[in-house]
Design a protein around this nucleic acid. Structure first.
Lengths: 199, 199
DNA sequence: GTCTATATTCCGATAGAC
DNA sequence: GTCTATCGGAATATAGAC
């Protein structure tokens, strides 16, 4: 169909722009200009702006989430899998700002259809993994909320990271991915231990 | 100066539009049209679009965060304060989608200056409160990360809420604010208890 | 596959009457 | 304080040559 090179290059350029500025703030002219081409040429590769946005998001999510899912399914010990998941998910969210910002934009602005896509392509596999590690004796709602908390606390850290230097006692050094991942891993182990004791 | 009525009405209309669609997707014409007035008239009340956006965000944050800060400072028992904070913060983030969406947009898109404002007006008081309740024997970095986790997990829940119906085993009923707040409160109590035991 | 050229609509912002 | 009228430019998108 289209030569993969140009099309992919456009997707990666637009991904960076959309992530940084938001979909509606980035014009077709902006993307074309960043690519060193004419706006009209974009319409040869993509039907319209909505199409470019949708293809961009799909491309980024597919590209970034496949390796982490594979890695998770290669590890077999439950405790190690949770640890592995936390470290990789923290690193993905805090280290790849294009992926993270597009994810948050989809979470905030996505309609039902796009949220469904997002759930399926990005969050379903991690969700099943974490959910499978939760205490099976808990009632269903508790397990579900616990899973949302684990993924949510990582999202929350990534979202609050740029704010840390402005908070009392904070500085940018606290946003170090390894520190964050170790802290969350420890907290989750504590929570799991506490669950066992109180049952 | 300006009659407070019209100006405030504009701010609340633009807050709803900006929260739902994002700043750059909402034109001055859109705001004027929703107000039943002329775009030119907006420029009598606000210098330009940047000014309207900034005043809108400031207005919403000031209006929504004052009551919660007052409530927190009225309660004196630490355990109750944490519980109270969790319940009110969850209710604010999951119940007021205008406030929540503007908060996330500022966190994602805000430049250094706006992040500073945000930290000061919205998150500094809750942060000090939660931080003050953390185990004082922990090293500084641990206490700081624990505080970020507590606020972050609430943010994460609010961010993931629209996604829950699309996740395996999930339905919209799991987004009930009281359930979420109770779950987080319990998790934080467990974590605190676990901290005491392992020291 | 990329360009020039252009149609059409929309945008932020201002001047000036009432 | 709100309006009409309008400017200059930027937006999405298309037609058609190379």
């Amino acid at each position: 169909m289209h030569p993969a090179d140009t099309r992919t290059a456009i997707l990666e350029t637009s991904a960076r722009l959309y992530a940084d500025l938001g979909y509606s703030a980035v014009s077709m002219r902006d993307v074309a200009s960043a690519m060193g081409m004419t706006p009209a040429n974009l319409y040869h590769h993509f039907k319209n702006k909505d199409d470019l946005v949708h293809e961009t998001v799909t491309h980024v999510f597919a590209e970034k989430t496949e390796p982490i899912a594979e890695m998770l399914e290669a590890e077999s010990r439950d405790a190690d899998r949770l640890d592995l998941f936390v470290h990789h998910f923290v690193r993905l969210l805090t280290g790849d700002r294009v992926f993270f910002r597009l994810l948050v934009r989809e979470l905030v602005d996505g309609d039902e259809g796009r949220l469904g896509d997002l759930a399926h392509t990005v969050l379903e596999r991690p969700f099943r993994l974490v959910s499978g590690l939760a205490d099976i004796r808990q009632p269903e709602e508790e397990r579900f909320l616990a899973t949302v908390s684990m993924i949510g606390v990582i999202l929350g850290h990534a979202l609050l990271a740029p704010l840390l230097p402005h908070l009392p006692g904070g500085h940018a050094g606290f946003a170090d991915p390894t520190s964050i991942a170790n802290h969350i891993s420890a907290a989750l182990r504590h929570a799991a231990a506490s669950d066992l004791e109180t049952k």
